[in-house]
Amino acid sequence: MSLETFIQQLANGISLGSLYALIAIGYTMVYGILRLINFAHSDIFMVGAYFAFFLIAVFKLPWLVSAILAIVLTACVGMTIDRIAYRPVRNAPRISALITAVGVSFFLENLGLVTVGARPKPFQRPDLMARVIRIGPAAISGVSIWVPILSIGLVAILLYVIYRTKLGMAMRSVATDIDTTRLMGVNVDTVISYTFAIGSALAAAGGIMWACKYPQINPLMGIYPGWKAFTAAVIGGIGNITGAMIGGFVIGLIEIMAVAAFPALSGYRDGMIFGLLLVFLLVRPTGILGETLKEKV
């Protein structure tokens, strides 16, 4: 591999990894609080991209305004899903909640197929993202630079919210012990709602940036990024936000670098990541940063 392609692929891997990280955070936050794999999270990601698409293409709003509005709308969708579908099954056996999540995921995908159609739509990206930037010998697309920067900015805001605000404190407390937190007079349902809102907003930002990176969107676009991001969350240690970020970068880099080094593997790209997941569950089930979640007896 020449230095030029190496730098290009590295930038590519980092930007892909930062997107996985953004999605993975949403999975890990919900899992940390509810012990629920929110299968619909990958479709929230798709919904975010579509909101932006329609705001830009149909309502002709400026790009940045559309993106911000799309993120807000998607956060509302996330909260609505929690309110309508997940809250009623919160005290049901865990398997019921998981089945509900699978149902919501399939519902969003198929609703997408029925309403906007299966045909991919071209996504208009801002000039900033399309511009080519030179680093040393390598020409790198603006997306590969801007995506990681924006992602890290978003994560910084998130970390501020979690560690410096009252809401963040409530979220951490709910994740540690939901019953005690409720007894202390915190409205747990509201905290969970906000968690869904934040996770969905990050997923929407990820979806919009994904659409900038691979400028075509379709209703099933969330499935693979979503599952890989969940894998990233597991590899980083499920329930752990820093772990989810590390996992995201690891997965993104492995995916891009393995294929760049061995082009013959390109067909196995998706399978590879899941293979990695199985290996990880076998050798280090708690993930890179995770600790064993002890069950109370």
Partner: peptide, 25 residues
């Protein structure tokens, strides 16, 4: 083997991943 060694819902993601591996293969 990897899924049942630990508690939690790892089976869901491991089985989904397995299905995708089979699909890719």
């Amino acid at each position: 083997i990897p899924s049942f060694r630990l508690r939690g819902d790892y089976l869901a993601i491991a089985t989904f991943g397995f299905g995708e591996i089979i699909f890719v293969l």
